[in-house]
């Protein structure tokens, strides 16, 4: 399970981080200022937030904006790579379910 190095125990001696809050599918999630949205989710142990057309779960794979596995809707904009987007206080993240939308699109 993914998590974050607790700041008090990190050998690089970080300053105390400042918190922020965002919502994921309406649920409040606590993060730290300066984290990417993917970082906020991974720090909570959440490793998947998208499902593919075939219904498979996906989260971060490449971590540097190349693979697009980690995309989600942020403040109404779809297909935002969460590994590249810094979290801002109050961001509303909605996970993308390509499986559902493919089903729904069928006549």
């Amino acid at each position: 399970m993914s998590d974050i190095v607790p700041w008090g125990a990190d050998p690089i001696r970080p300053a105390e981080p400042r918190p922020l809050r965002l919502t994921v599918d309406g649920e409040t999630v606590e993060g730290l200022q300066g984290q990417s949205i993917a970082g906020v989710l991974l720090a909570q142990g959440r490793t998947a937030w998208r499902s593919t057309t075939a219904g498979r779960p996906r989260g971060v794979f490449c971590g540097i904006g190349v693979c697009f596995d980690c995309v989600a809707t942020v403040n109404g904009e779809s297909d935002v790579r969460l590994c590249l987007r810094r979290a801002a206080d109050g961001d509303a993240v909605e996970t993308q379910d390509d499986h559902d939308s493919a089903e729904g699109a069928r006549p």
């Binding site: 993914s2 998590d3 190095v5 970082g39 996906r58 971060v60 971590g63």
Partner: peptide, 25 residues
């Protein structure tokens, strides 16, 4: 390799250095 929890090696490093995230224990 499509399972969550499989990362490119670069992702694991970028997350550790850039966010202090550890992708696993």
């Amino acid at each position: 390799w499509h399972l969550p929890g499989v990362y490119s090696a670069g992702a694991a490093q970028a997350l550790a250095k850039g966010e202090r995230i550890r992708v696993g224990r």
